[in-house]
C-alpha cells in the first residue's frame, strides 16, 4: 500500500494540482487559440490552393505540388527551429506563437490541399458536365457543384489531420510558447514532482478527446451511408 501511496502522491498530488490549476487553465487557453489560428490558416490556404489547382495551369500547379510535398515531407520541428533561430540572423525576429502558427498553418495547408484535391478529383465528371451544360462557367461549376461535394468527401480525413496537427502546438514548448506542455514542464521543474506532467496530459485529453470522438462519429456516419 505504501508503494501505491507514493505513486499516487508523485503523479496525482492534489495540492500541486490545486496550486497550478490557474496556470494550467491559462495554458489550455493558449493551446486552444493557437490551434484555432492554425486550423483557420491551414484550411483556408489549403482550400484556396486546391481550387487554384483545378484550373490546370502547369506552372502554378507545379508550385502547389512542390509546396504540398515540402509541407508533408519536412518535420515541423525543423521548420520551427529554422524560423525561430535562423531568421533573426537576417534581422527578422518573429515571436514564438507567430512562428508556431505560420509553420503549423503551412503544414496543415499542405495536407489540406492534398485532401481537398483528392475530393475534387473524386467528383464524377458528369457533375461538371451537367454544370457546364446548363451554362455555368468553370468557376461557378467549381464553387456551386464540385466544391460542396468535394468538401463533404474530404471531411473525415481532414478532421483526422486537423487533430494531428493541432496537437503539434505542443512543439511551442520548445520555443517558449506557454501552452499546456510548457506550463507543465515549468511546474514540474519547480515542484520536483511528476504531478504537473499528469495534469498536462489530462488537460490534453480534455481538449482533444472531443475531436477524437468526432472522428469516430464521422466514421460511423459515413459507414452507414454506404
Amino acid at each position: 500500500m505504501d508503494g501505491l501511496d507514493r505513486f499516487l502522491n508523485t503523479f496525482f498530488n492534489g495540492a500541486i494540482f490545486a496550486r497550478y490549476l490557474p496556470d494550467m487553465l491559462a495554458g489550455v487557453w493558449v493551446t486552444i487559440w493557437l490551434a484555432a489560428a492554425v486550423i483557420a490558416l491551414g484550411l483556408t490556404l489549403g482550400l484556396l490552393l486546391a481550387c487554384l489547382r483545378s484550373y490546370g495551369n502547369r506552372v502554378v500547379n507545379l508550385c502547389i505540388i512542390v509546396f504540398a510535398d515540402l509541407g508533408r515531407a519536412l518535420p515541423p520541428l525543423v521548420l520551427i527551429l529554422i524560423m525561430y533561430f535562423g531568421l533573426p540572423g537576417l534581422g527578422v525576429r518573429l515571436s514564438g506563437p507567430l512562428v508556431l502558427i505560420l509553420v503549423l498553418g503551412f503544414v496543415l495547408a499542405a495536407f489540406a490541399e492534398e485532401i481537398f484535391w483528392a475530393g475534387l478529383t473524386s467528383v464524377a465528371r458528369g457533375q461538371w458536365e451537367a454544370g457546364r451544360a446548363t451554362g455555368l462557367g468553370f468557376t461557378q461549376t467549381l464553387i456551386h457543384v464540385a466544391l460542396p461535394q468535394a468538401i463533404r468527401l474530404a471531411i473525415p480525413p481532414l478532421v483526422n489531420r486537423v487533430l494531428a496537427i493541432s496537437k503539434m502546438t505542443a512543439l511551442g514548448s520548445v520555443i517558449g510558447v506557454s501552452e499546456i506542455l510548457a506550463v507543465a514542464s515549468t511546474a514540474q521543474s519547480f515542484t520536483g514532482s511528476a504531478a504537473p506532467l499528469t495534469m498536462g496530459a489530462i488537460a490534453y485529453v480534455i481538449v482533444f478527446l472531443p475531436l477524437v470522438i468526432l472522428t469516430r462519429i464521422l466514421e460511423h456516419r459515413y459507414a452507414w451511408k454506404v
Partner: peptide, 16 residues
C-alpha cells in the same frame, strides 16, 4: 449553352 438543354444518360443531378 443556355440555348441548349441537355439530358444525360446518368441524370447527373447534384447530390448535395
Amino acid at each position: 449553352r443556355l440555348n441548349l438543354g441537355m439530358v444525360f444518360q446518368g441524370f447527373h443531378l447534384y447530390p448535395h
